[in-house]
Design a protein around this nucleic acid. Structure first.
Lengths: 117, 117
DNA sequence: ACCCTGTTTTGACATCTGTCAACCTAGAGA
DNA sequence: TCTCTAGGTTGACAGATGTCAAAACAGGGT
């Protein structure tokens, strides 16, 4: 997973079309960010070094289990890491995953649109 | 939608948590990229200046209507633009949208994660 | 040992999503 | 006008997803 950094930096989405395997590997990350609740959770987690679930839950009009479910989706997508310390559970972003996604997107703005054909 | 560029450049996901409205506006774009077929379609479109549906469809083991459906999702998410010219329909990425998403993600890798705690 | 609080898991349910077959629409050409 | 081809739309259906209530699990404190 760490070595995927190299892939991200050299074959972004816009330089060469992704094959089915690449797409299948990356899509779940985008999918995880494709829900407004999870996107907000993600940004709350990313905006600090780490954050307790007890600080995340009250920000939403949703039940605890629902928040827990969304956090699990983010976890399983490899976007965040969780760690229990005593009573509370703390969440932190996994920067590699973020970098990976960012690298896929940022380049695609560069090539000229009207140029080729 | 064009002015959202300014938002993206100055308040990325990691600097300040997104509010519910922002998240609701951006999530559909990530959601659109959250399917392997659409992600591949997107990268095929992004890898050239523009591309005909007739060149996209044969790359998948899927029916025409299904490809058409996925293209519609990408279109409605504001990620691509389509234009009919004679018999064929041509697709092109909307770079603003891509830039927007890229800006949200790329910054979050910058702040040190181990630094604060 | 017991209870209390924070978090996750399980089960259930309504809604959304991906897919196809069948049909419809838009242009090009005869 | 008629026909052919490229794409899109509609309807239907299986499977995935978001949500909650209820139960289970993990630690801390009494």
């Amino acid at each position: 997973m760490v070595s995927s950094n190299a892939v991200a930096c050299c074959s972004p989405i816009a330089v060469r079309p992704m094959d089915a395997d690449q797409a299948a590997a990356v899509a779940p990350m985008f999918k995880a960010l494709g829900d407004p609740v999870r996107l907000r959770l993600m940004s709350m987690i990313a905006s600090v070094a780490e954050i307790c679930v007890c600080d995340l839950t009250p920000a939403f009009d949703l039940s605890g289990p629902t928040i827990s479910h969304h956090l699990k989706v983010l976890r399983e997508a490899g976007l965040v890491h969780s760690e229990r310390r005593g009573t509370w559970v703390w969440y932190r972003v996994k920067p590699e995953a973020f970098q990976h996604l960012g690298a896929l997107l940022e380049i695609s703005a560069a090539p000229t649109v009207g140029g080729t054909r």
